[in-house]
């Protein structure tokens, strides 16, 4: 893949259509886990890892099992490449979510066995990721944008970075905010939303960026 496509996908995923601030995906952890910088970084790393893995796995499953193409494995196996390939794309939501749930479990078990240190820092965030819509979102986006394998991987990885960027920026701000005097009604989630709004305005500046 040439460097230009890579750059377009990366800048798009991190800045122009930032997962949290522009696409509104993964808001629950964004508001929930952004109170401290340490946990925000941990969560971000876990999300980058799972999003890259999920992009690769769901892309492979979609292309070789669900899509109506001649390279569909089910088509080769059960129909002997005769007739028209079956269109199973309607099963993508159910397949993707199960794959992601299994993947998260698997990653959790492997990390626990291989690196207990890493497990202690990432472990508690992993179960939260199953219901993080950013992971399913990036998988669906890869399919809709008709990315190839490497583009899907790059998109998954950089979308994770975009998510982490927004989360870490937010956590940094919220740690400072602890010291600020706020009206009682604004404390907690409301002020976090309003700050997210201001950050979103800043990210609007990236719109229309072209190479």
């Amino acid at each position: 893949m040439d460097f230009h496509t890579f750059l377009v996908i990366a800048v798009g995923a991190i800045f122009v259509s930032n997962f949290v601030l522009m696409r509104f995906l993964g808001l629950c952890p964004y508001i929930g886990v952004s109170k401290q910088l340490d946990s925000a970084v941990g969560m971000g790393m876990a999300v980058i890892f799972v999003m890259s893995m999920a992009s690769v796995v769901t892309w492979t499953i979609y292309t070789y099992f669900l899509a109506p193409t001649p390279s569909n494995i089910l088509f080769k196996l059960f129909m002997g490449s005769q007739g028209t390939p079956p269109d199973l794309t309607y099963l993508r939501t159910i397949t993707f979510i199960l794959v992601i749930a299994t993947l998260v479990q698997l990653v959790e078990m492997i990390i626990q066995k291989v690196s207990p240190g890493l497990y202690r820092s990432l472990g508690i965030y992993l179960p939260l990721i199953t219901t993080n819509c950013a992971v399913l979102g990036v998988s669906l986006l890869n399919i809709d944008s008709e990315y190839n394998f490497i583009q899907a991987l790059v998109n998954g990885f950089t979308s994770g970075i975009g998510f982490t960027l927004a989360l870490v920026l937010m956590a940094g701000l919220r740690e400072k905010l602890e010291l600020a005097r706020l009206p009682k009604a604004m404390q907690g989630a409301p002020v976090a939303f309003i700050m997210a709004g201001c950050m979103s305005i800043a990210f609007l500046g990236f719109a229309g960026l072209k190479f």
Binding site: P183, P190, A192, F193, A196, G197, L204
Partner: peptide, 14 residues
């Protein structure tokens, strides 16, 4: 646009 969504829900919850 996207910032409006955050601002609206923020003020509503407040």
């Amino acid at each position: 646009m996207s910032p409006g969504a955050f601002l609206t829900i923020g003020f509503l919850v407040a």
